[in-house]
Design a protein around this nucleic acid. Sequence first.
DNA 1: GTATATGCAAACCGTTTGCATGGCT
DNA 2: AGCCATGCAAACGGTTTGCATATAC
Lengths: 122, 122
Amino acid sequence: MRPTRQRLALAALLVGDGGNRHVTAESLYAAAAAEGEKVSLATVYNTLRAFCDAGLMTEITVDAARSYFDTRTDDHPHFFWEDSQTLCDAPAEQLDIRSLPKAPDGAEVARVDVVIRLRRRS
Amino acid sequence: MRPTRQRLALAALLVGDGGNRHVTAESLYAAAAAEGEKVSLATVYNTLRAFCDAGLMTEITVDAARSYFDTRTDDHPHFFWEDSQTLCDAPAEQLDIRSLPKAPDGAEVARVDVVIRLRRRS
DNA sequence: GTATATGCAAACCGTTTGCATGGCT
DNA sequence: AGCCATGCAAACGGTTTGCATATAC
């Protein structure tokens, strides 16, 4: 993968702020624009996809309307705030799964997604 | 909610075959058409949404491209076959979660989604 | 110089909505 | 009669794609 100016800029944004970012294409596009980086939305999509294909980040499916991307690539749980549509990491060490439904014959587990949907307490 | 012909037909399809169906709008639309039921795709969407609002079924978010609906309303784990894009229930009794990341202050857990993504073993 | 990434706009696809028609009570 | 569901088609929004241009090596 070629280290072009746009890719480096997007990568810097993703790694910056201490890493562990959860972005949507729109939010990353906005962040790039805020820094004065000239990147098109299509390139943001293409780049996010390229990073995912390269194993540098993963796509998290929590909302049918929008795709979220996570800079962490290991399997870990997430909090999803339903009111603000915000995604963030949940402390993995507080999750204790003692047993998992065993995969049917001929199947192997690719990933286990755990999404804890949160509502603001009334 | 009014028991109209279309809604009864869709409900029958969802309850039929022993219940516990996982459908997309398209698949339910196709199933209705296969039975000779005249329903428009928009009505299928509206009806699925109405059933969800009424608490008769739930929407499961596993794939950004498509919405899946489940006739079971309790919180239970799912298998998702990545190759065929198929969703089905995973045996809940085989899932043993001893502890869950505790919700941040001011938040309560609305639901915990557990999706086990499966790949056909090579 | 050559291959490949970019940018734009147009295509795409699942989903939603507006509005006129039709059915239930 | 009145209310509300239906159906169609057009709108919608996020994502992808085609193609000409620009850029990295």
